[in-house]
Amino acid sequence: MADTSMANTEPNILVIDGNPDRAAVVERGLVEAGWVRVSTIGPSVNLLARIQALAPDVIIIDLENPDRDTLEQMFQVSRVVQRPIAMFVDQSDSHMIHAAIDAGVSAYVVDGLRQDRIKPIVETAITRFNAFDRLRRERDEAQSKLQDRKQVEKAKGLLMKHRGLSEEDAYNLMRRTAMKQNRKLSDIAQSVITAFEMEI
């Protein structure tokens, strides 16, 4: 019994995100930090019906999500959702508002929920949004590096095959050209590949 009453005092958190991967990262972060009542919904659902059914106390939604206009209307019309909801918890906390905007987080909170209970939820969401961004950036960089390496290998192979250069000479030729033209090695590799493709 004690557990049930504990659970019911926990805020009911809903994460809405057009990017399901990020929604999962945010949800996991919240659950790991100790909030147990967390659900997520993605784009293209009947948002009105889903939110009425879930009756969340806190909604975390990505700032750029076009469904925000739908949410705002629902919160204006008390008939649809029981209590009015304010945006950005404590509107005097401009530091947090700017941190949220920078991270791309927007939050809606049922009026009456204590601010000291909301703040850590929003802060966790901000941290997870930032972490997700960092991960995505690192992944993109790693992918582009891998792509660059593949191109250099391909260009080297073409020079070896069609110009009879050794592997070392082929590489040095491209590197010297890159330095001379002040361009990236991968750009030179791409030019080499294009040149050979055009000959064919």
Binding site: S44, N46, L47, L48, P66, D67, D69, T70, E72, Q73, M74, V77, V80
Partner: peptide, 14 residues
């Protein structure tokens, strides 16, 4: 009637 809000690009789908 109920009057809600949906972003225009999603209205036709809804």
């Amino acid at each position: 009637v109920n009057i809600g809000v949906i972003t225009p690009p999603r209205m036709v789908e809804s």
